[in-house]
Simulated scan of single mutants.
Amino acid sequence: MTVVGWVRARVGELTRFGIVGVAGIVVNLGVFNLLRLGPLAPDATVAGDDDRVVTAKVIATAASILFAWVAHREWTYRGRGRHRPARELVLFGLVNGAALIIEAGTVALSHHGWGLTSLLADNVASLVGIALGTIARYVGYSLFVFEAPAPAVLGDDAGAADPRTSPR
Protein backbone atom coordinates (compact mmCIF):
# COMPACT_ATOMS: atom_id res chain seq x y z
CA MET A 1 0.00 0.00 0.00
CA THR A 2 1.34 3.43 -0.90
CA VAL A 3 1.54 6.29 1.57
CA VAL A 4 -1.28 8.06 -0.27
CA GLY A 5 -3.41 4.89 -0.10
CA TRP A 6 -2.65 4.51 3.60
CA VAL A 7 -3.68 8.12 4.28
CA ARG A 8 -6.86 7.79 2.15
CA ALA A 9 -7.86 4.66 4.06
CA ARG A 10 -7.50 6.53 7.35
CA VAL A 11 -8.56 10.07 6.42
CA GLY A 12 -11.50 10.15 8.86
CA GLU A 13 -9.45 8.77 11.74
CA LEU A 14 -6.53 11.09 10.97
CA THR A 15 -8.88 14.08 10.81
CA ARG A 16 -10.41 13.23 14.20
CA PHE A 17 -6.93 12.59 15.62
CA GLY A 18 -5.85 16.01 14.33
CA ILE A 19 -8.86 17.82 15.78
CA VAL A 20 -8.33 16.22 19.18
CA GLY A 21 -4.63 17.01 18.82
CA VAL A 22 -5.27 20.71 18.14
CA ALA A 23 -7.64 20.88 21.11
CA GLY A 24 -5.00 19.09 23.19
CA ILE A 25 -2.41 21.66 22.13
CA VAL A 26 -4.72 24.43 23.32
CA VAL A 27 -5.12 22.66 26.66
CA ASN A 28 -1.36 21.96 26.86
CA LEU A 29 -0.20 25.48 26.00
CA GLY A 30 -2.99 27.08 28.02
CA VAL A 31 -2.07 25.23 31.20
CA PHE A 32 1.68 25.67 30.49
CA ASN A 33 1.36 29.44 30.11
CA LEU A 34 -1.00 29.81 33.09
CA LEU A 35 1.57 28.00 35.24
CA ARG A 36 4.60 29.70 33.62
CA LEU A 37 3.10 33.15 34.13
CA GLY A 38 1.49 32.33 37.49
CA PRO A 39 2.47 30.00 40.32
CA LEU A 40 5.49 28.49 38.53
CA ALA A 41 6.84 31.75 37.05
CA PRO A 42 10.57 32.41 37.38
CA ASP A 43 9.99 35.05 40.07
CA ALA A 44 7.27 33.16 41.98
CA THR A 45 8.05 31.55 45.32
CA VAL A 46 5.63 28.62 45.14
CA ALA A 47 7.50 25.31 45.57
CA GLY A 48 10.85 27.02 46.01
CA ASP A 49 12.55 29.83 44.16
CA ASP A 50 14.02 27.93 41.21
CA ASP A 51 12.79 28.31 37.66
CA ARG A 52 10.22 25.54 37.22
CA VAL A 53 9.60 25.60 33.45
CA VAL A 54 9.95 21.82 33.09
CA THR A 55 7.57 21.24 36.01
CA ALA A 56 5.03 23.50 34.29
CA LYS A 57 5.51 21.51 31.07
CA VAL A 58 4.99 18.17 32.81
CA ILE A 59 1.78 19.37 34.53
CA ALA A 60 0.44 20.87 31.28
CA THR A 61 1.19 17.72 29.33
CA ALA A 62 -0.50 15.56 31.99
CA ALA A 63 -3.64 17.74 31.76
CA SER A 64 -3.70 17.40 27.97
CA ILE A 65 -3.14 13.62 28.23
CA LEU A 66 -6.28 13.18 30.35
CA PHE A 67 -8.26 15.36 27.95
CA ALA A 68 -6.98 13.39 24.94
CA TRP A 69 -7.71 9.98 26.45
CA VAL A 70 -11.38 10.83 26.87
CA ALA A 71 -11.63 12.47 23.43
CA HIS A 72 -9.83 9.66 21.60
CA ARG A 73 -11.71 6.94 23.45
CA GLU A 74 -15.11 8.47 22.81
CA TRP A 75 -14.55 9.92 19.33
CA THR A 76 -11.34 9.28 17.38
CA TYR A 77 -11.12 5.52 17.92
CA ARG A 78 -14.76 4.91 18.79
CA GLY A 79 -15.25 2.05 16.31
CA ARG A 80 -12.15 0.15 17.35
CA GLY A 81 -11.90 -2.70 19.79
CA ARG A 82 -11.11 -1.65 23.30
CA HIS A 83 -9.30 -2.98 26.28
CA ARG A 84 -10.95 -2.71 29.65
CA PRO A 85 -10.85 0.99 30.65
CA ALA A 86 -8.22 0.49 33.37
CA ARG A 87 -5.87 -1.42 31.05
CA GLU A 88 -6.50 1.03 28.22
CA LEU A 89 -5.69 3.97 30.49
CA VAL A 90 -2.44 2.29 31.57
CA LEU A 91 -1.42 1.67 27.94
CA PHE A 92 -2.49 5.21 27.03
CA GLY A 93 -0.44 6.49 29.96
CA LEU A 94 2.64 4.54 28.87
CA VAL A 95 2.45 5.87 25.31
CA ASN A 96 1.92 9.38 26.64
CA GLY A 97 4.74 8.92 29.16
CA ALA A 98 7.09 8.39 26.24
CA ALA A 99 5.61 11.44 24.50
CA LEU A 100 5.91 13.48 27.71
CA ILE A 101 9.61 12.61 27.95
CA ILE A 102 10.03 13.78 24.35
CA GLU A 103 8.13 17.03 25.03
CA ALA A 104 9.71 17.87 28.37
CA GLY A 105 13.13 16.85 27.05
CA THR A 106 12.75 19.29 24.16
CA VAL A 107 11.85 22.14 26.55
CA ALA A 108 14.65 21.17 28.97
CA LEU A 109 17.23 21.04 26.17
CA SER A 110 16.18 24.42 24.80
CA HIS A 111 15.78 26.13 28.18
CA HIS A 112 18.59 24.64 30.23
CA GLY A 113 20.91 23.17 27.59
CA TRP A 114 20.91 25.96 25.04
CA GLY A 115 20.04 28.82 27.42
CA LEU A 116 16.98 29.94 25.43
CA THR A 117 14.95 31.11 28.43
CA SER A 118 12.45 33.64 27.06
CA LEU A 119 8.74 32.88 27.07
CA LEU A 120 8.80 32.83 23.25
CA ALA A 121 11.69 30.34 23.19
CA ASP A 122 9.93 28.14 25.77
CA ASN A 123 6.76 28.15 23.66
CA VAL A 124 8.63 27.36 20.43
CA ALA A 125 10.41 24.48 22.16
CA SER A 126 7.07 23.36 23.57
CA LEU A 127 5.51 23.32 20.09
CA VAL A 128 8.46 21.36 18.65
CA GLY A 129 8.13 18.88 21.51
CA ILE A 130 4.38 18.61 20.94
CA ALA A 131 4.95 17.86 17.24
CA LEU A 132 7.48 15.12 18.01
CA GLY A 133 5.29 13.76 20.79
CA THR A 134 2.26 13.71 18.48
CA ILE A 135 4.03 11.42 16.04
CA ALA A 136 4.95 9.09 18.89
CA ARG A 137 1.36 9.18 20.18
CA TYR A 138 -0.29 8.30 16.87
CA VAL A 139 2.03 5.37 16.33
CA GLY A 140 1.61 4.20 19.94
CA TYR A 141 -2.17 4.54 19.98
CA SER A 142 -2.51 2.71 16.68
CA LEU A 143 -0.20 -0.13 17.68
CA PHE A 144 -0.87 -0.61 21.38
CA VAL A 145 -3.88 1.23 22.79
CA PHE A 146 -6.81 1.08 20.36
CA GLU A 147 -7.07 -2.17 18.46
CA ALA A 148 -7.57 -1.90 14.70
CA PRO A 149 -11.03 -2.78 13.45
CA ALA A 150 -11.36 -6.06 11.61
CA PRO A 151 -10.80 -5.45 7.90
CA ALA A 152 -13.90 -5.72 5.75
CA VAL A 153 -13.63 -8.21 2.95
CA LEU A 154 -14.78 -6.64 -0.30
CA GLY A 155 -17.46 -8.55 -2.12
CA ASP A 156 -18.06 -10.87 0.83
CA ASP A 157 -21.72 -11.83 1.05
CA ALA A 158 -21.75 -13.46 4.46
CA GLY A 159 -25.37 -14.54 4.20
CA ALA A 160 -25.19 -15.87 0.64
CA ALA A 161 -24.79 -19.57 0.03
CA ASP A 162 -21.76 -20.85 -1.84
CA PRO A 163 -23.00 -21.51 -5.40
CA ARG A 164 -20.67 -24.53 -5.66
CA THR A 165 -22.42 -26.28 -2.73
CA SER A 166 -26.00 -25.03 -3.13
CA PRO A 167 -28.61 -27.45 -4.42
CA ARG A 168 -30.05 -26.43 -7.74
Results as ranks from 00 to 15, higher is better:
Leu14Glu: 05
Ser118Pro: 03
Gly133Phe: 01
Asp156Arg: 15
Phe146Asp: 04
Leu127Thr: 11
Pro39Phe: 12
Arg84His: 14
Pro163Leu: 12
Leu37Asp: 10
Ser126Met: 12
Leu94Arg: 10
Arg8Gln: 12
Lys57Gln: 15
Ile101Arg: 05
Ala98Thr: 13
Gly113Arg: 08
Leu109Lys: 02
Gly159Phe: 09
Ala44Ser: 15
Gly38Pro: 07
Pro85Gln: 02
Ser118Phe: 06
Pro163Ser: 12
Leu89Met: 13
Phe67Thr: 09
Gly12Ser: 12
Ala71Val: 08
Ile19Glu: 01
Asp50Trp: 10
Gly140Pro: 02
Arg82Val: 06
Glu147Asp: 12
Met1Gln: 07
Asn33Asp: 08
Pro85Val: 04
Arg168Asp: 10
Thr15Asn: 09
Thr2Phe: 05
Gly38Arg: 06
Thr117Val: 12
Leu116Glu: 07
Glu74Tyr: 09
Ile135Pro: 00
Ala108Thr: 06
Gly159Asp: 15
Ala104Tyr: 07
Ala63Thr: 11
Asp50Asn: 06
Ala71Asn: 07
Thr134Leu: 04
Tyr138Ile: 01
Val26Asn: 00
Pro151Cys: 05
Phe67His: 13
Pro42Gly: 15
Gly12Phe: 00
Val3Thr: 12
Gly129Tyr: 08
Ser110Phe: 12
Thr106Gln: 08
Ser166Phe: 06
Ile25Thr: 15
Leu91Thr: 00
Leu91Pro: 00
His112Trp: 10
Ser118Cys: 05
Val124Ile: 15
Val11Ile: 14
Phe32Gly: 02
Gly5Glu: 13
Gly97Arg: 08
Glu13Trp: 00
Val90Ala: 13
Leu14Asn: 04
Val70Cys: 07
Asn28Thr: 10
Thr106Tyr: 03
Ala86Val: 14
Ala62Leu: 14
Tyr141Gln: 00
Ala71His: 00
Gly30Glu: 08
Leu143Gly: 00
Ala98Gly: 15
Trp69Val: 01
Val20Glu: 01
Arg82Tyr: 02
Leu14Pro: 06
Ala60Ile: 03
Tyr141Met: 06
Val145Trp: 03
Ala125Ser: 14
Leu100Met: 15
Asp122Ala: 14
Leu154Arg: 14
Ser166Leu: 13
Ala108Lys: 09
Val70Arg: 11
His111Ile: 05
Phe17Thr: 00
Gly38Trp: 05
Ala56Val: 07
Phe92Ala: 02
Ala136Gln: 06
Pro151Leu: 03
Ala99Cys: 11
Asn96Thr: 07
Gly105Ser: 10
Gly81Asp: 13
Leu132Lys: 03
Ala160Tyr: 06
Ala62Gly: 10
Thr15Trp: 04
Gly5Leu: 03
Arg10Pro: 02
Thr165Gly: 02
Thr117Ala: 14
Pro149Cys: 04
Ile25Glu: 03
Gly140Val: 01
Asp51Ser: 12
Val70Gly: 03
Phe67Pro: 07
Thr165Ile: 10
Ala121Thr: 11
Glu103Leu: 06
Leu66Asp: 04
Thr117Leu: 06
Arg73Tyr: 12
Leu100Cys: 13
Gly97Tyr: 03
Asp162Ala: 11
Val11His: 09
Thr117Gly: 10
Leu40Met: 09
Arg137Lys: 13
Pro39Met: 13
